[in-house]
Design a protein around this nucleic acid. Sequence first.
DNA 1: TGAATCCACAACCACATGGTTGTTAATTCG
DNA 2: CGAATTAACAACCATGTGGTTGTGGATTCA
Lengths: 119, 119
Amino acid sequence: MDSLSTTLAALCDPTRRSILARLASGPASVNELAAPFSMSQQSVSKHLAVLEKARLIEQQREGRQNFRTLRPAPFKEVADWVEQYRRFWEDSFDRLDDLLLELKQERSKEKKNVRKARK
Amino acid sequence: MDSLSTTLAALCDPTRRSILARLASGPASVNELAAPFSMSQQSVSKHLAVLEKARLIEQQREGRQNFRTLRPAPFKEVADWVEQYRRFWEDSFDRLDDLLLELKQERSKEKKNVRKARK
DNA sequence: TGAATCCACAACCACATGGTTGTTAATTCG
DNA sequence: CGAATTAACAACCATGTGGTTGTGGATTCA
């Protein structure tokens, strides 16, 4: 699977996003990360494995404990991807209507050209 | 499932992102959307259903054809979410090291305080 | 009207995902 | 040393996902 798909798949679980939010305030051990959730440590470790495969976090052993830290790159990848669509949500509703109308007119023009080309 | 999770789950498939990219240049029918892929029309329709459940697209019937259009709101939701993490990827690597070092030091300060509190 | 086109619905299948429990290795502490 | 802590590994299970094929309804066109 491509990198962006892996990243988005890792991010689509609320437990994992919550873990990332915790890590945004600094590294944490597995137990610390698991504490807020009503699930087993093993389940949280599975989530951590998913986040690590997506390179959203990295490990750093210290004795018995295993600390996790954020890795920034995939976040930027997501931001860059969604940025392409900014014009859609930033235009006012009126301007969006204009945009869609414009696109629709281009569309029917193309259709006419196709018909013309067939004749 | 919450709205953001549904959106990210819809976005984590490359076929669906490709469909959205096509729709960014204007509305399209199911056949038009299915054409670039080496999969059945029914599979593409399933992907469209996922995108529609996430409110990333909407339908508009015209005779036999069923056109799809982009809906901007969920894109903004994703952009707003990832924006929280901007400071992590925008800081230079040196500054990031500083940041992590800083967080780490805060952490060990907390630890010391905990030990102090126990005494 | 009859044929062709567009597309949705349903059933089926292989595989991934998110949870569980049981266990064990490594490390720290008394 | 022996006990407790931390966290990983493995097996298992229910459910969801992404594909398939078969089918049929609505619409258009000759």
